[in-house]
């Protein structure tokens, strides 16, 4: 749905030229939540501004729904922007307007009649969960509420795409989660395509379907969130994965775990997406005459299922243990068996 071809942006200062975005190619499908992650200075903020031409690209193409954004005249671009919603790290609300008037602003710009505007605003206020705060001014709202206003405002003209520029970076972790759930909710309810940029891997892990990792203005790695999580290729990607999964070094080695137990076997269960969930464990406990003891683990939920590892001690009759292991192997969970040699 969104095609980005060889997109580049060079910032020219007096003495030097800074290549913020360098020959970037990306393709984003309709209805997907696409995340772009990178450290500050990686060019991700510039990249998202190039999509709606808040920054003019130096070269390259952006196409949304077969409309070449980079070829539009100023006036055409203005109209086209009404179909591209955008939310910001610092919300960027008009403080002189109430919540209702802020959400109404894009509708005024689009030339919608007043009765229709009021009706649409009420819908949006319900959608983002701000009922009762319609007449408050932004200064009377919390950060999370301000971002909800931002989201309602971005959705007012039924956009095809929602661009999120570090939308949760100024919020505390709890509020971040509630805003992320709202974005998923909107994505599912309205089938809206969402592009978000962030420096927080857990944002990607929580809501994105696909992710691109940016470094020095280039996409160095991209793919399904699950694949990138389980097999990060680049050093920078590995660092981001560590943000949520912890360093591999932090994990206990097989030896230390084995030292602590004197009976049964240790199973290392590896969850990778799809139907993976902890119910596997309780099923094993119910079906087979074995005792299970969870020793250590780290499992994260992503948009396409759980991901992580779990160390489990299994004790009981050798025959039963074997059956239990066969059962787990038959699910999507990968098993490694460790035992005293």
């Amino acid at each position: 749905m969104i095609k980005i071809k060889q997109l580049s942006k060079v910032f020219q200062t007096n003495s030097t030229a800074i290549q913020a975005v360098n020959a970037l190619d990306l393709s984003i499908d309709k209805g997907e939540i696409f995340g772009v992650i990178g450290y500050s200075g990686a060019g991700k903020s510039t990249f998202i501004r190039l999509i709606n031409r808040l920054e003019e690209p130096t070269s390259g193409q952006v196409t949304i729904d077969n409309q070449e954004i980079t070829a539009l005249s100023k006036n055409e671009l203005r109209l086209s922007r009404q179909e591209i919603g955008m939310i910001f790290q610092h919300f960027n609300l008009l403080w002189s307007r109430t919540v209702r008037e802020n959400i109404m602003f894009p509708l005024e710009i689009a030339g919608i009649s007043k009765p229709e505007r009021l009706e649409r605003v009420d819908e949006l206020i319900r959608l983002v969960g701000l009922t009762g705060r319609e007449d408050a001014y932004p200064s009377q709202l919390s950060g999370g509420q301000k971002q909800r206003v931002g989201i309602a405002r971005a959705l007012a003209n039924n956009p095809k795409v929602l661009l999120c520029d570090e939308a949760t970076s100024a919020l505390d972790p709890e509020t971040t989660d509630s805003i992320l759930s709202l974005l998923v909710d909107i994505n599912e309810k309205l089938g809206l395509t969402i592009i978000l940029i962030t420096h927080e891997m857990h944002v990607i892990q929580k809501i994105c379907h696909r992710v691109a990792v940016m470094e020095d203005g280039r996409v160095v790695e991209q793919g399904n969130v699950m694949d990138v999580f389980s097999h990060p290729q680049q050093a920078v990607t590995k660092k981001f994965v560590e943000q949520v999964m912890g360093k591999p070094d932090d994990e206990l080695t097989d030896e230390t775990i084995l030292k602590q137990i004197d009976q049964g076997k240790i199973l290392r269960l590896h969850f990778v997406g799809e139907i993976a969930n902890q119910a596997t464990i309780s099923q094993v406990a119910k079906k087979y005459d074995v005792e299970l003891n969870i020793l250590h683990g780290n499992v994260k939920q992503t948009q396409s299922g759980a991901y992580g590892t779990l160390f489990v001690q299994i004790t009981g009759d050798d025959e039963e243990i074997k059956k239990a292991i066969d059962f787990i192997t038959s699910t999507s969970v990968q098993v490694e068996v460790k035992e005293h040699v």
Binding site: N52, L54, L77, R78, L79, S80, R81, Q82, I84, M86, F88, H90, N92, L93, L94, F105, P106, E108, I109, A110, R153, N157, L163
Partner: peptide, 21 residues
Amino acid sequence: NKGVIEAAKSMGAKTSTIIFK
């Protein structure tokens, strides 16, 4: 706030709208 002007631009506001509103 420059961000607010940018937000208005991202909504497709005309220059006159940005000036007056």
